[in-house]
Nucleic acid binder design. Structure first.
Lengths: 216, 216
DNA sequence: GTCTATAATAGGATAGAC
DNA sequence: GTCTATCCTATTATAGAC
């Protein structure tokens, strides 16, 4: 019954290798576009073996999404705990989030795709509940930061929920946009130089918007 | 052979009813999540009848996406042709785009989902080529507007491709975000009051960013 | 923990009657 | 232009041997 490995064990468990394979495939083709046969094939297992680790497909999907969201949550907590002014914390968080999305090219796509599946993650299984919890935690912390900054005058007064949607749109979307983003930019969104540029453009946009001051 | 109806005919063609049904379903469950059986059922036809109007599933999908993109293209062209300063044209365009997305709740989801399907729209069929053309046309016009505004000093100097990605992220994403957006906002993203608020928040964000001037 | 075998269903697509 | 019938393959999931 003990599936936990000793900490000095370097082997990656079957469960994690299944999650890795499923994550990549879900990013590429979405929930319905991925068959468990293909997941098993990538991992190097028989199809039926997957059901020993996850009781069905929705649970596997929720486990993939949950793992991503927990990592984002951890990153956010670490960033916020490091202190600084609200502006510093916001900019550091967005920087770290972008780094995380770039280091794990499947994340942005899996996340946005999952937001579009209103049905497929709405169950009562523990993995699905965990997804909801992580989302609420992340958005709660980000919202609190925005409110603190607006209260102290560091941020312009704005509608907090709409600002949260805006922040998700400008940070996550570009790294999920695949060929579209590549065509717009004329190069890979994940290339280091392009990532640096995106971070800079994001900071500038948050500081000044787009419209020049003379026009206001 | 003539499938074209006389202009005084009020009946909606089977082809259009198939496109309508497919659009709604693709928005809900994505390309792979929709079976042609279900599309046919919604329209009230047998599954095989669909193949008389579209030769296969990829073509139907491309036709759905193409119809949406053409409407956005038309809206953009009309807006840009109406003249005004770059700031006026940009703000009018975003306003009109949001109205279009709100009037057609499937649009945002179908569009963003299609951007995540690098494979499923990359063929050589005329419908797929048309999708590419419309995207290039829309992004070309928007990019030209940005460059014009930056040249005249109306917009802050910024990286045009990244700004395009940002604009897509802040305009389209919220209306594709479904339950997530609903939870963040505490209400329906498509409710008239919320749409008005989003338009206002968008204008403010473009004019001032998020960070207060005192902090700069 | 992984395997083979199997069940039951749904998928896209075609042929041909009407 | 729509239908029924059919083909072949893939899907999720289970049972039970090893």
């Amino acid at each position: 019954m003990s599936t936990a490995l000793p900490i000095w064990n370097n082997e990656i468990s079957s469960r994690d290798r299944i999650l890795d394979a499923a994550e990549t495939l879900f990013a590429k083709r979405g929930y319905s576009g991925v068959g468990l046969r293909e997941v098993a094939e990538v991992v190097g297992l028989g199809k039926s073996s997957l059901f020993h680790h996850f009781k069905n497909k929705p649970q596997l999907y929720a486990a993939v999404c949950g793992r991503i969201l927990r990592r984002i949550e951890e990153s956010l907590m670490r960033t916020l705990a490091a202190g600084g002014t609200p502006v510093e914390r916001l900019e550091r968080w967005l920087d770290d989030l972008l780094s995380l999305l770039v280091d794990n090219p499947s994340y942005a796509r899996v996340l946005l795709r999952s937001l579009f599946e209103d049905d497929d993650l709405a169950g009562e299984m523990p993995e699905e509940v965990e997804v909801e919890r992580a989302i609420a935690s992340i958005m709660g912390s980000a919202g609190a930061l925005l409110r603190e900054g607006m209260g102290s005058g560091a941020f312009r007064p704005a509608n907090v929920p709409h600002t949260l949607l805006t922040l998700v749109g400008i940070t996550v979307f570009p790294f999920a946009s695949g060929d579209f983003g590549r065509e717009i930019l004329g190069g890979d969104v994940f290339a280091p130089a392009e990532v640096q540029r995106r971070k800079q453009e994001l900071r500038d946009f948050l500081r000044s918007g787009l419209i020049a001051r003379a026009e206001r």
